[in-house]
């Protein structure tokens, strides 16, 4: 791409990232429809699109577009309307810097690990804005739970990623994946578990969906949203799964390392990320929702100590076997 003019290259890369941002979450969503259905002895969508309901999410999108866009009378209008985009766009930025292979990456940034972690935390601001602006007590409760969850789980997640960065000796995602070798599967295992659990909590996916908890607080911060804005929140959730799964694949599973990685590297990253996404779906289907206090307890009494232990283990490993 280096022989193209810089402006054309920027546009091409942006379009490619946007396409991935629109297609990959739908793929994960459809996988969730089907995997969840079969895990529960059902068939899932079977009609939309003809073959096993492959176009179900496209149909859902068309339905969302047709719905009325309601803003509650007492809502904080601008904040209410802006919130879905604040929730959605950080994941778009994060997806741009996650490499599928050393060459297939939207934007190669030096300290991309820091950028990804910083940007993902911004997404929760969208939920907070939505909860505050809705003028609805359930929304506010949901937003507060989301904020509390972010504060609790951001710490173990950052510690786990810090351990990987320490092991690789770089803050670049490409550099980390290049430094990866199969021994990391054992060496970084506690950190990987901590990262996966914390990622689930950040995404507010079951069993950590207290901020949504439809049986308690209707649908949390998203209660008052309709139509396309609600669809953006849903898209943000699935884009979040894509980002977290790819991040896990790059950090802990070696990203593009595999047979024929010169040409098929991007495919290996995508496949590994897809497997992680299936695990995320599997956990959702299998486990019940945690209570708010259990959720905080898990973060502070188990994940933070585990992440600190991993950090110490990595430090010892780096010093002893540089």
């Amino acid at each position: 791409m280096s022989d193209l003019s810089p402006w054309l290259e920027v546009v091409l890369r942006a379009v490619a990232v946007l396409a991935a941002f629109l297609v990959l979450p739908l793929l994960v969503g459809q996988t969730e429809h089907k995997v969840m259905a079969h895990m529960q002895g059902r068939l899932g969508p079977m009609y939309a699109g003809g073959f096993h309901g492959w176009a179900q999410l496209v149909a859902d999108g068309v339905k969302f577009v047709q719905k009325e866009d309601i803003t509650p009378a007492r809502a904080d209008r601008w904040v209410f309307r802006l919130a879905p985009f604040v929730a959605l766009i950080p994941y778009l930025v994060a997806l741009a810097v996650i490499p599928l292979s050393p060459r297939v990456v939207g934007a190669d940034v030096d300290a991309s690990v820091v950028l990804v972690l910083a940007v993902i935390g911004v997404g929760i601001i969208g939920t907070l804005m939505a909860g505050w602006a809705s003028a609805n007590k359930y929304s506010l409760l949901g937003a507060m739970r989301a904020a509390a969850q972010l504060v609790s789980y951001e710490l173990p997640m950052v510690l786990a990623v810090a351990s990987v960065a320490l092991a690789a000796g770089t803050l670049s995602l490409v550099g980390i994946a290049e430094a990866w070798n199969p021994w990391w599967l054992v060496w970084q295992l506690p950190g990987a578990v901590v990262f996966l659990v914390a990622a689930l909590a950040e995404l507010q996916r079951p069993p950590f969906d207290m901020p949504l908890a439809d049986s308690e607080i209707v649908f949390g911060a998203f209660t008052e949203y309709t139509g396309l804005r609600f669809a953006f929140f849903l898209l943000a959730e699935y884009a979040g799964i894509v980002v977290m799964s790819l991040l896990f694949a790059v950090l802990y599973l070696g990203g593009w390392s595999g047979p024929l990685e010169e040409w098929l590297g991007w495919l290996w990253t995508l496949l590994k990320g897809f497997l992680v996404a299936v695990v995320v779906i599997w956990l959702r289907v299998s486990w019940p929702r945690m209570r708010e206090d259990q959720l905080q307890r898990l973060a502070w009494m188990w994940l933070v100590p585990m992440a600190l232990f991993q950090l110490a283990l990595t430090a010892v490993g780096v010093v002893v076997h540089p």
């Binding site: 895990m39 529960q40 002895g41 599997w282 956990l283």
Partner: peptide, 8 residues
């Protein structure tokens, strides 16, 4: 996890 995997 085993139960859901089996039904799958």
């Amino acid at each position: 996890l085993a139960t859901t995997a089996r039904s799958l």
